[in-house]
Design a protein around this nucleic acid. Structure first.
Length: 813
RNA sequence: GCCGGUGUGGCGGAACUGGCAUACGCAGCGGACUUAAAAUCCGCUCCCCGUAAGGGGUUGAGGGUUCAAAUCCCUCCACCGGCACCA
């Protein structure tokens, strides 16, 4: 056996031990408090685990090991979000079935995770691609369908010709596909849509119940985009009907000078006069063909066409021309607006372009130069009904808004209304590698499959190419597609879309609780024991989508009694991005990707785990440094040498004698610091304190066991392999994982002498040593007697003496 | 443009509730051990003046509150993340 710590042997030994002993198996135990510690499960890509994954996984692993030692029953599972585009694209290219590549990639990930010493209960491993798992994803879809939360709509979708598929809004970045960066255009298509908007209010409201990063809460709030205002009816002139508009600025109703419909608005056909029809149709066509990128280009000049139609402003009976323009979106509010160019930036620009009148109704700006949009300043003017029965003149906009809204309700011209930016969730993908919908089409109607027929398995094929018509590759499999309606026996056609990747990750945390249950999604008693997730760690790229969709499904499951808590994830933390050594984002093209396997080969698993946590605060973005890993390796070698001699035996420096008071103080301070830092996920400072302890121990010729043993336990969640080995060499029975976390004695945390800094006029001038229990008078008296201080005081009587208990004295001259 | 966050040595970062700024690690310098090197151990290392004792300055910039500010307030700058015609 070599002199130094041999990480390979030790790691293999203890990983085998944990596996054989089932150290991290977990069952419900009503006698113990539970702790559910969850990682965002990965998509098992072909390139394996990277150091960024490992950062979050190490953090939850340390917390899990720590909580176990604190007596918690810890659920710490791992699985695979394995449906998705890359495996399918690979299949298109190579003909290799996604099942094959997925299985290989999962094997790689699992091996790497086991190697990293992550203490998952592997008996609970799940994959979203497993029929016994997606059976329940399909089951949840049936529940959504039953409750009217899943419906089919002919909607303009984001069609990507290059990928041959439709994309969700979230998969589009700057108007191009997130995958590949291809062009995306609008195209109407029959789609499955989930009515997440029905839950908008609860999704917003219940953000109060969770302990999440402020930025994530903010992003979800903005995404839901609740906005309080009024709907107002504008009767059409010459034809029957009203234009219903939504506004947050009812106080500016008297300033409306024209109306705008979204080009797709159904009333466009009604209001357009014959002479204008050709022009209107042409504009509509152009808009329909525009991609979102073109349509959202803020730089471009606003465009629109006059329809020839008119509506009446209900507050003053004025005749307003009706335009169509693509700056009004069909998907927000009512798809129609009243335009108040004096007090809305967009309307102002449009009015300028088309020489429409600009009428000021809020005094306080210069509307000839720019729109005046403030609501907390300015005064309402020119806002009295023609018969003089109602006026908001003289008010400030914030006061005027509720007043006129009430009046609109009383006179039945409009009503208070709330709208959301959140849209219903486009839930279908034209792909092979996803969950098939448990739906058949009969006489043009969607029919659910009975629950007993789940799972509806993905059919076998070796042709993964998109059909090109916009349908998924499943559409080519006629034997599968053509079936009979289980209810009536009539000929039926299967739904050929598959679900998006988000589906499987919406509820996986529930399945970990009861992963093998063949009768239920999750056993209710187990669900009540384990839920909610106490700590959830994953990347901030999921701040909106995954976390909003999962909350939505969770609330539906709550409503049907499957889940017992209104929210799934109590505390959420995002680990920061790990950059390359060059401070740049890691990427193959830059050649700065750090491979965790190589690092673990060279420095050992514990060194890599420790370094991942020592780099800096968990949430911060920070660069990798291989030198830093070396530094950690030196630390672990020092810890090893505290107890193990050059021959590999227990060092003679380890003694049975009682430690000194000072030594016990250091130990107890260390226990306190490490414990508190772990509770707050401040792993970097916890490690720094263990280094301080180790540095002090190294200086000692004799190292009492009573100091070393608790220290090994403190180290064990961070560096479990070396800790197990040292524990054994200290003559203890394995495993450290079964030991109790050391407690600190508060009496030993404070030392009996304190160094008190002495300031004169707030500047540090001297320091004195005092007994810890000194009174204010004693400390101040000692301070005055201090020789250095005398120079500064020069016999003068200070105006004021500030004493902060156990902290400092400040003489103000 | 709007919203959120961050800014501390050569580098990664510490600093409780407003109370000794720069813990811990990296890099660097010096010493011990060694025939030598590596490894290890010990020490030094924010900047300026000074041989030293000592003094002055410093937490992106500027101002303010306070006996006392990295920490609180105002203005500005830079960077990161998000949203972006949402009526």
């Amino acid at each position: 056996m070599g002199k130094a710590y041999d990480h390979r042997t030790v790691e293999a030994k203890w990983q085998a031990y944990w596996g054989e002993q089932g150290t991290f198996r977990v069952m419900e135990d009503p006698a113990r408090p539970k702790f559910y510690c969850l990682d965002m499960f990965p998509y098992p890509s072909g390139s394996g685990l990277h150091v960024g994954h490992l950062e979050g996984y190490t953090a939850t692993d340390i917390v899990s090991r720590y909580k176990r030692m604190r007596g918690f029953n810890v659920l710490h599972p791992m699985g695979w979000d394995a449906f998705g585009l890359p495996a399918e694209q690979y299949a298109v290219k190579t003909g290799i079935h996604p099942t094959m590549t997925t299985a290989e990639n999962i094997a790689t990930f699992r091996r790497q995770m086991k190697r990293a010493g992550l203490s998952y209960d592997w008996e609970r491993e799940i994959s979203t691609t497993d029929p016994s798992y997606y059976r329940w994803t399909q089951w949840i879809f049936l529940k959504l369908f039953e409750r009217g939360l899943a419906y089919v709509a002919e909607v303009p979708v984001n069609w990507c010709p290059e990928l041959g598929t439709v994309l969700a809004n979230e998969e589009i970045v700057d108007g191009r596909s997130e995958v590949g960066g291809f062009e995306v255009i609008r195209k109407p298509m029959r789609q499955w849509v989930l009515k997440i908007t029905a839950y908008a209010d609860r999704l917003l409201e219940d953000l109060k119940l969770v302990d999440w990063p402020a930025s994530t809460l903010e992003m979800q709030k903005n995404w839901i985009g609740r906005s309080l205002g009024a709907e107002v009816e504008f009767p059409l002139i010459g034809v029957k009907g009203n234009i219903r508009i939504f506004t947050t600025r009812a106080d500016t109703l008297f300033g409306a000078t024209y109306m705008v419909l979204a080009p797709e608005h159904p009333l466009v056909d009604v209001v357009t006069v014959r002479e204008r029809r050709a022009e209107v149709l042409a504009y509509r066509e152009t808009t329909a063909r525009k991609s979102d990128l073109q349509r959202q280009d803020l730089e471009k000049e606003k465009t629109g066409v006059f329809t020839g139609g008119y509506a009446v402003n209900p507050v003053n009976n004025e005749r307003l021309p009706i335009w169509i323009a693509d700056y009004v979106l069909m998907t927000y509010g009512t798809g129609a607006i009243m335009a108040v160019p004096a007090h809305d930036q967009r309307d102002w620009e449009f009015a300028r372009t088309y020489s429409l009148p600009i009428r000021e109704v809020i005094a306080g700006g210069n509307v000839a130069k720019e729109a005046f949009v403030e609501i907390d300043q300015g005064t309402v003017v020119n806002s009295t009904t023609s018969d003089g029965s109602f006026s908001i003149n003289g008010l400030n906009p914030t006061e005027a808004i509720p007043k006129i809204t009430e009046w609109l309700e009383a006179t039945r011209k409009g009503r208070r209304a709330v709208t959301y930016k959140l849209r219903d969730w486009l839930f279908a993908r034209q792909r092979y590698w996803g969950e098939p919908f448990p739906i058949v089409w009969v006489d043009g109607e969607p029919r659910p499959l009975p629950e007993e027929q789940l799972p509806l398995k993905l059919p076998e094929t070796n042709n993964f190419k998109p059909s090109g018509t916009g349908e998924s590759p499943l559409a080519n499999l006629t034997a599968w597609v053509n079936t009979t309606d289980p209810a009536t026996g009539k000929p039926a056609r299967r739904e050929t879309n598959t679900m998006p990747q988000w589906a499987g990750s919406c509820w996986y945390y529930l399945r970990f609780i009861d992963p093998k249950n063949g009768r239920q999604l999750v056993d209710p008693a187990k669900e009540r024991y384990w839920m909610p997730v106490d700590l959830y760690i994953g990347g901030s790229e999921h701040a909106v989508l995954h976390l909003l969709y999962a909350r939505f499904w969770h609330k539906v499951l709550y409503d049907i009694g499957v889940a017992s808590t209104p929210e799934p994830f109590t505390k959420l933390v995002h680990q920061g991005t790990v950059l390359g050594e060059d401070n740049q984002k890691m990427s193959k093209s830059r050649g700065n990707v750090v491979n965790p396997d190589e690092m673990m080969d060279q420095f050992g698993v514990d060194a890599v785990r420790l370094y991942e946590m020592f780099m800096g605060p968990l949430e911060a973005m920070k660069p990798w440094s291989t030198r830093g890993v070396e530094g950690i390796t030196r630390f672990l070698d020092r810890v090893w040498r505290l107890m193990v001699n050059e021959g590999g035996g227990l060092s003679r420096a380890v003694i049975e004698a009682e430690p000194s008071l000072e030594q016990r103080r250091l130990l107890h301070q260390t226990i306190k610091k490490v414990t508190e830092d772990l509770e707050e996920l401040r792993f970097n400072t916890a490690i720094a304190q263990m280094m301080v302890f180790t540095n002090e121990m190294t200086k000692l010729e004799k190292r009492p066991r009573a100091l070393l043993e608790p220290f090994v336990l403190l180290l064990s969640p961070f560096a479990p392999h070396i800790a197990e080995e040292l524990w054994e060499r200290l003559g203890k029975a394995p495993s450290v994982a079964k030991e109790l976390w050391p407690q600190y004695d508060p009496a030993l945390v404070a030392s009996e002498r304190l160094t008190i800094p002495i300031q004169v006029n707030g500047k540090l001038r001297s320091k004195i040593e005092v007994p810890a229990d000194s009174s204010e008078e004693q400390v101040v008296r000692l301070a005055r007697q201090d020789a250095k201080l005398a120079e500064w005081l020069q016999g003068k009587q200070p105006r004021k003496v500030i004493y902060v208990e156990k902290r400092l004295v400040n003489f103000v001259l």
